[in-house]
């Protein structure tokens, strides 16, 4: 539904003071319509700044953010509308829950969009379904929920705005494996049913390999590489050089290939790896 193109994006913290830090430096990248794009990079590489630019929370010092070919900063007063089209789930979003009930909290976004109460109700239920929150949880206080449930409620708060682009900054950080799984499934669910573009920031190469089509790799505020998942993970040496990694199973396949065993190294899940190995037997 929507394509985002970043043109020559730069961002500098505390510009003009001795504490000047360049957070992003001349980034050019396109997030394709309907794709799942992953952003990877080590801590402090500018990932969070970049995703906050996608919905206009941070204004680039130089360069343009184009949403469907239109500069989002063309009319700064209308930036609020961009935020409904590009939904951003920040890190640890459960800390922003504030209403008395989960229902009211999920309704906060749609209410700000000025929708009528029937539409809001409908969207709240729909969003709750997407993230797999039971209906009876909707009447509970955010403080009565578990960590994973709170996280999903917070994501539902963004999904309820039905954004064309759903951006998530480390959506699964700090959750147990089943919690991670549920979060990622909710996101994929939303993507599948609405065709939205999804952008995910994550440190888990396994998740990235599993869910993403395209990857953007940042290192020290610069665009290190971008392209299809295979292309990026195919350059394992460059990734490890900047402190990143490929999925463990891919590392193993690379080692096998290095030993002269004829395996395809573009393998990211254990099942695929198994198939490859079975073929050899």
């Amino acid at each position: 539904m929507a394509e985002i193109r970043l043109e020559n994006i730069s961002y500098v913290y505390s510009e003009g003071t001795p504490f000047e830090i360049s957070a992003l430096d001349d980034i050019n990248v396109t997030i394709k319509n309907g794709s799942v794009t992953g952003i990877i990079g080590h801590t402090g590489s500018g990932k969070s700044t970049l995703v906050q630019m996608l919905n206009g929370l941070v204004k680039p010092a130089r360069g343009k953010v184009m949403l469907d070919g239109k500069d989002i900063w063309e009319n700064p007063k209308e930036i609020g509308k961009i935020r409904f089209r590009v939904g951003l789930v920040m890190q640890y979003p459960e800390y922003q829950l504030f209403e008395e009930t989960i229902r009211a909290d999920i309704a906060f976004g749609p209410k700000n969009m000025g929708l009528d109460s029937k539409e809001i109700e409908e969207r709240v239920l729909e969003a709750a379904d997407f993230v797999g929150l039971d209906r009876d949880l909707l009447e509970k206080s955010p403080f009565d929920l578990s960590g994973g449930q709170k996280r999903r409620a917070a994501i539902a708060g963004i999904i309820a705005m039905r954004p064309e682009v759903l951006v998530l900054d480390e959506p699964a950080a700090g959750l147990d494996p089943s919690g991670r799984e549920m979060i990622m499934q909710s996101i994929m669910n939303y993507k599948k049913r609405t065709g939205a573009t999804v952008v995910i920031v994550s440190h888990s190469m396994e998740d990235m390999a599993r869910y993403c089509d395209y990857l953007i790799v940042l290192a020290d505020g610069k665009l290190l590489m971008t392209g299809k998942k295979d292309e990026v993970f195919g350059r394992a040496d460059e990734l490890t050089a900047v402190g990143l990694d490929v999925p463990q199973i891919t590392t193993m396949m690379n080692l096998l290939a290095g030993m002269g065993i004829p395996v395809n190294t573009a393998v990211y899940t254990i099942d695929d790896a198994l198939n490859q190995i079975y073929k050899l037997l």
């Binding site: 929370l57 920040m90 922003q96 969009m113």
Partner: peptide, 28 residues
């Protein structure tokens, strides 16, 4: 800063409206 950004991402507006509305906007 973080919470403000998060609520802005959900369309919260802290800068316009009447004084009462702005005070209400601080609750989130």
């Amino acid at each position: 800063d973080k919470i403000m950004s998060a609520q802005k991402a959900r369309g919260a507006d802290f800068t316009s409206g009447s004084l009462i509305n702005r005070a209400k906007a601080l609750i989130p």
